[in-house]
């Protein structure tokens, strides 16, 4: 039996490194083998395993657009051993990449509908990929609502990016900080407190979110209360990932493997699991 080896990374090179905030950075990568590069295809919401030489692998969501598969962007927060090491890479440095893995956003279902895209915390890569994807295909969708929550007003970055998003037709950007500052122009409080400003038809909308699980529970609860069907609410989940192939068992959330059944789930698939602490 000869089988493809799903564990073997491809060699990749850093084209550019962008510092987004003190802990957040974007690596723009290309595969070094032109054939592999030409064959590489992904969907928004999928992720790659990035390998740092001598240190190990980490699962990172892809933020670039699928039509520009030659340049693969990853926005990464330096929180662990591998990501701190990745933060030190510079243009021209090499690393390993395997992927793409997992089930991404329901872009098919989302066509022609109103969208509500919610994120808590910063630089939530899966949601950034969804927003960029949708706004590049603005005519394919109804009204677009982008709701961003941050803990502290000082954490807010990418102001120009939100301005650029808000400049699209029929696109609303709503921003909230748990803790404001004197000059903070937006809402102080929870993202869910902004929901009365949303422009969408709950019966004909797709909700997409990522962020802390507590926030996602609250958003789902309020969306259900507004009569959004649970199957139209989508969450991008995070768990420990070692293999990304459904074998190592680390990413399990109840009976679900986040790496292959997700990372994007519809709310009806995981609603009960989200209520249990310590899964």
């Amino acid at each position: 039996m000869t089988m493809a080896n799903p564990y073997l990374p491809l060699s990749a090179r850093v084209l550019e490194r962008i510092q987004e905030s003190p802990t957040l950075f974007t690596l723009r990568l290309e595969l070094t083998d032109p054939k592999a590069q030409a064959a590489y295809a992904f969907a928004p919401g999928q992720f790659n395993m990035l390998y740092l030489h001598g240190v190990g692998e980490v699962a990172i969501s892809i933020v670039s657009d699928p039509t520009e598969g030659q340049v693969i962007d990853h926005t990464i927060r330096a929180v662990g051993r591998v990501t701190h090491g990745l933060a030190k890479l510079r243009a021209g440095d090499h690393l390993g990449l395997r992927g793409p893995f997992g089930r991404g956003w329901p872009m098919g279902q989302a066509q022609g509908r109103d969208l509500v895209i919610v994120t808590g915390g910063l630089g939530c890569a899966p949601v950034v990929s969804a927003i960029e994807y949708v706004l590049r295909r603005r005519d394919d969708h109804g009204r677009v609502n982008i709701v961003q929550g941050v803990k502290h007003a000082d954490d807010f970055i990418w102001r120009d990016r939100y301005d650029r998003w808000a400049a699209h037709p029929r696109t609303k950007v709503l921003i909230a900080a748990d803790v404001g500052t004197p000059l903070w122009p937006w809402h102080v409080g929870l993202v869910t407190e902004l929901f009365d400003q949303l422009a969408f038809d709950p019966k004909h909308a797709t909700i997409m979110m990522c962020g802390p699980e507590g926030m996602m529970r609250a958003v789902a609860r309020d969306m259900l209360a507004m009569d959004v069907p649970d199957r139209d609410i989508w969450l991008s989940m995070e768990r420990n990932m070692h293999c990304a192939t459904g074998h190592c068992g680390h990413c399990q959330l109840g009976p679900r493997f986040v790496c292959k059944d997700g990372p994007v789930f519809s709310y009806d698939e995981i609603a009960e699991l989200l209520q249990v602490k310590g899964l």
Binding site: Y7, H53, V55, G56, E57, H242, C248, G249, H250
Partner: peptide, 30 residues
């Protein structure tokens, strides 16, 4: 079936071995 990956780099950094080892949902890092 749970297992984890582990990296065994050689001193000097010219090469590294990528291993998998049995793991357990009882181990703290799982």
């Amino acid at each position: 079936f749970c297992h984890r990956s582990q990296e065994d780099p050689v001193l000097g950094g010219s090469h590294s071995e990528h291993l998998r080892l049995w793991d357990s949902c009882f181990s703290p890092g799982h």
